[in-house]
Design a protein around this nucleic acid. Sequence first.
DNA 1: ATAGTTATGTAGACCGTCAAGGTATCCCGG
DNA 2: CCGGGATACCTTGACGGTCTACATAACTAT
Lengths: 109, 109
Amino acid sequence: MGKPSDLVQGTLDLLILKTIQLEPMHGWAIAKRIQQVSGEVLQVQQGSLYPALHRLEQQGWIKAKWAESETGRQAKFYALTAAGRGQLEKETSNWNRLSAAIDLIVTEA
Amino acid sequence: MGKPSDLVQGTLDLLILKTIQLEPMHGWAIAKRIQQVSGEVLQVQQGSLYPALHRLEQQGWIKAKWAESETGRQAKFYALTAAGRGQLEKETSNWNRLSAAIDLIVTEA
DNA sequence: ATAGTTATGTAGACCGTCAAGGTATCCCGG
DNA sequence: CCGGGATACCTTGACGGTCTACATAACTAT
């Protein structure tokens, strides 16, 4: 599938924050959801996912709570904090700014 | 200006290839042009630029030739090779694929 | 003289991603 | 009962691109 690169460097935080914006989710579900919504284009490796989650938690942007998953198992559910909502806004506008700038170059006469 | 990050990781090769698609350019001019066309959003540091140029040359996607710049000085002009044109196409479609996928996540209900 | 611009380059640090491995539980089929 | 696959968590080490900072040189203008 995604041979060249499964992710665009530096966008995983944004993708995670956005994904749990509506409702708290556990890591495994976050990865599945990103893949599904992106039409299987974005592949989130576990070696990228869990470090990112811990990073975000340490920054105070998300907060973890153990609970029962849909399948009846214990799982760590992550929820956006107030600071996380602010961060999501920042990263969203930054992404829009940069991707628009790149598109200016790429879609050129 | 670009406080959080001046570049999106992994897109510099694409930006360079695209920039010299029309006419060969020297490194300094490539950086200036990317910044200008992007509306000063994308900042290309020399510490990113020159390694990238050498990388691309080593891959056989661009070819260097010393010539006189607009200001009358010696400068290394880089031109796209045939392989480079192919690579440009690949990287362009890959960027479109990935950025579209990210936008699917970001611009969500 | 000296400061700024053009133009190239390198060294070292940083940091996010990836490949690969590990643990444990649960369910299903054979 | 046993094995494989899915769910769910995690870590380690390598890799690679970007950034900060530094270094050089020539030309220009004050």
